[in-house]
């Protein structure tokens, strides 16, 4: 590169004219200012996720099926990651599933977090290809295990909204654990 002219003094600091500083000598020096910045968005979840959220208001968990493999995605985004084609068939999923992985939380965050320590998990709903996220309650946190069978615990019917928070938590059900090998690849 020889045809690009760099301006003079690119790598040196030019001398500063501080003549004006004397005038403001008795002004309080500012070390730090805070300038809040915010941009507002009018968020729209899209067609498939809107169907999903509206289903939740009716206490239904709606996944959508891949045309090629038949796998069901939940929450649906509208397109299958396998074939890149729209998911067109809605599938009503049961409210039961298996813990595919979990984590014990020792530091509380957010406003609705349960008392620590508590357990959050990915739950593979029966018939779904990917897991959903939620806290596990009604069992000691150190008794949770991969393959454990759980069901959704919903808010009261008069509290139902178009929100995944309709499901307060997941609790164990009295069924034998599933083989963790069967949960591989379904995080």
């Amino acid at each position: 590169m020889t045809d690009i002219q760099m301006p003079d003094q690119l790598w040196t600091q030019p001398a500063i004219n501080d003549a004006a500083l004397g005038v403001s000598a008795d002004v309080e020096q500012i070390q730090r200012i805070r300038i809040p910045a915010a941009v507002r968005y009018d968020y729209v979840p899209g067609l498939a996720t809107t169907r999903f959220l509206r289903g939740l208001a009716n206490k239904e968990i709606l996944g959508e099926r891949c045309q090629t493999t038949g796998e069901v995605y939940v929450p649906p985004r509208g397109v299958s990651p396998i074939d890149g084609l729209p998911t067109v068939e809605q599938v009503k999923l049961p409210h039961t599933g298996s813990v595919s992985t979990f984590c014990v939380v020792h530091i509380a965050f957010g406003t609705n977090a349960p008392p620590t320590p508590f357990c959050t998990a990915l739950v593979l709903l029966d018939g779904a290809a990917v897991s959903v996220y939620g806290p596990i309650q009604e069992i000691d946190y150190d008794k949770v295990r991969i393959g454990m069978r759980v069901e959704a615990v919903w808010v009261e019917d008069d509290q139902l909204d178009t929100s995944f928070e309709n499901i307060k938590w997941w609790r164990p059900i009295d069924e034998p654990d599933v083989d963790p090998e069967l949960l591989k690849g379904h995080m």
């Binding site: 899209g46 067609l47 397109v79 084609l85 729209p86």
Partner: peptide, 25 residues
């Protein structure tokens, strides 16, 4: 394109670009 999310908006466009030249997966 208020009713669509981003993937719903761009998917048909990507599909068309691939299908026009018959690209296989």
């Amino acid at each position: 394109a208020r009713e669509l999310n981003e993937v719903e908006m761009i998917q048909p466009v990507i599909r068309q670009a691939l299908d026009q030249v018959g690209v296989q997966k």
